[in-house]
């Protein structure tokens, strides 16, 4: 147990990135950016295009991982939106990311009916999607990610980790890319 009251070191990601994660970018990229996000959270919505920017900027030097952290007590659509993204992911990695993008681009329409429309729009196997969605097939996975995030110090959404260390700075593009650049430079 700790002794003195701590203003402790930065929180660390306690659940390592594995092949089970949804990821973009190479496995051996020198920098891994993990986001714990909520599809209904407006701040995550604001961060969404900024992540695209840093992905473009860093190319193969950056691996991006998205994990679910739906704040269901304040966001009524967040859980089902996460389940829809994971149900899409059940049909393929590309399908996951297409759904992920679509949800962030349509944050004002995340009701069940809209989610099913998005699945159709993306050309997913409709029966499989409906069945996975209706049976909450990915509920446990989402809950595990939520608890893993809490144990890693996720303190709201979005929370980012750069190579396993919580990033507490602003997630506007230049501070985030500066932080990534710093980690990248030190990894070389």
């Amino acid at each position: 147990m700790s002794g003195d009251p701590t203003r402790s070191a930065v929180s660390q990601l306690v659940v390592p990135v594995t092949e089970d994660d949804h990821q973009q970018g190479p496995d051996d990229a020198p920098v891994t950016l993990v986001e714990y996000g909520d599809y209904q959270c407006s701040y995550c919505g604001q961060a969404y295009p900024l992540i695209k920017d840093v992905q473009e900027q860093f190319g193969d030097d950056l691996r991006f991982v998205f994990r679910n952290f739906p704040l269901t007590s304040i966001h009524e659509y967040a859980q089902h939106a996460a389940e829809a993204a994971e149900a899409a992911g059940g049909q393929g990695e590309e399908e996951f990311w297409s759904m992920h993008d679509l949800l962030y681009e349509n944050q004002d329409a995340l009701d069940d009916e809209s989610l099913i429309t998005y699945a159709e729009q993306l050309g997913l196997d409709p029966e499989r999607f409906r069945s996975d969605f209706a049976s909450h097939a990915f509920e446990d996975r989402i809950h595990e990610q939520f608890v893993g995030g809490a144990r890693s110090g996720v303190n709201g959404t979005p929370t980012f980790y750069i190579n396993g260390e919580r990033y507490d700075g602003s997630w506007s593009p230049s501070p985030l890319s500066t932080a990534i650049q710093r980690v990248l430079s030190s990894s070389r």
Binding site: D38, L71, G156
Partner: peptide
């Protein structure tokens, strides 16, 4: 958004 108490509540 997603303040401390909502997080603890969940």
């Amino acid at each position: 958004c997603g303040d401390q108490l909502s997080l603890y509540n969940q």
